[in-house]
């Protein structure tokens, strides 16, 4: 009964707010510099800055929500938030379930980081995050795949010897390798998988998708997107013409 009363109270409170056009932006919050929770406890990173700018241009009120990577698509389609902006590469499998905007990060390579150069990738144990294009790539390549729920755990697995190497977006690995004081090195050639990174939306949300597409186009046109990419990923990042 108490619970009934409480949920009724929550209901009553929530209905008293005006119906503003709030768009809930879903992200992972564990993938620096794409998106992460900063020390103040807020969502920060390239996608935070980009998302806020897109919302401003599309004249939308946006609110940030974090969700575990594993269940990020199911929670979008069941309506817990309205967009996924979490460094998600556009792939055919994902496109069957949700829709994507045009890409806001051009196709960029993945890379393999390990404790030493020259490991045999054919027989190595390679770590990747569950449900990523990198995990699918390793599974197909024949190497042994170990999956982890968060990107950080894939790095920790290599450092403590649980895995021989980690395959992830190069832009995610680059600062980690650079700051590891030589503990981690890139090995082998870069791997090109996946298209660019786009925002994910429900297939029934065509109107919102069009708004974000327009906003992304305008940011590409006036060069602000390129500036933002360079700010967060460094000068070597591929940019838009």
């Amino acid at each position: 009964m108490k619970k009934l009363l409480l949920s009724a109270a929550v209901l009553a409170m929530s209905t008293s707010f005006a119906f503003a056009d709030t768009v809930r932006m879903g992200t992972e919050g564990a993938y620096p510099p794409y998106n992460f929770i900063n020390d103040a406890g807020e969502v920060d990173g390239f996608e935070r800055e980009l998302g806020d700018e897109l919302c401003k241009r599309a004249e939308l009120t946006c609110e940030w929500v974090t969700n575990e990577w594993d269940s990020i698509i199911p929670n979008l389609v069941s309506g817990n938030y309205d967009t996924i902006i979490a460094g998600m590469s556009v792939t055919d499998e994902r496109d069957e379930v949700i829709d994507f905007t045009q890409d806001y990060i051009p196709p960029s390579p993945s890379a393999i980081a390990a404790l030493s150069d020259g490991i045999n990738l054919g027989s190595a144990v390679i770590a990747a995050q569950t449900g990523t294009i990198q995990a699918a790539y390793i599974a197909e390549s024949g190497a042994t795949l170990v999956e982890f729920a968060t990107p950080d755990e894939t790095i920790a697995a290599v450092k403590n010897g649980e895995a021989d190497a980690v395959l992830a977006d190069k832009d995610f690995l680059a600062p980690i390798v650079a700051e590891s004081n030589g503990e981690l090195v890139f090995t082998g050639p870069d791997v090109s998988i996946g298209g660019g990174v786009g925002m994910g939306l429900r297939e029934s949300d065509g109107e919102l998708r069009a708004k974000f597409n327009t906003a992304i186009s305008s940011m590409k046109a006036d060069g602000t997107l390129n500036t933002m990419l360079k700010k967060w990923f460094g000068d070597e990042i591929a940019t838009y013409e």
Binding site: L6, M13, A18, F19, T22, V77, G79, D82, R202
Partner: peptide, 30 residues
């Protein structure tokens, strides 16, 4: 039900998508 999507009108959302984050958190908590 539209394909994979579960779509209800915005007034029926629980909590409303316009309500602040703490309402969503309280709802999740209960």
């Amino acid at each position: 039900r539209q394909g994979n999507d579960f779509v209800v009108c915005s007034a029926a959302k629980l909590p409303l998508s316009s309500s602040p984050q703490w309402v969503h958190e309280t709802y999740g908590f209960f």
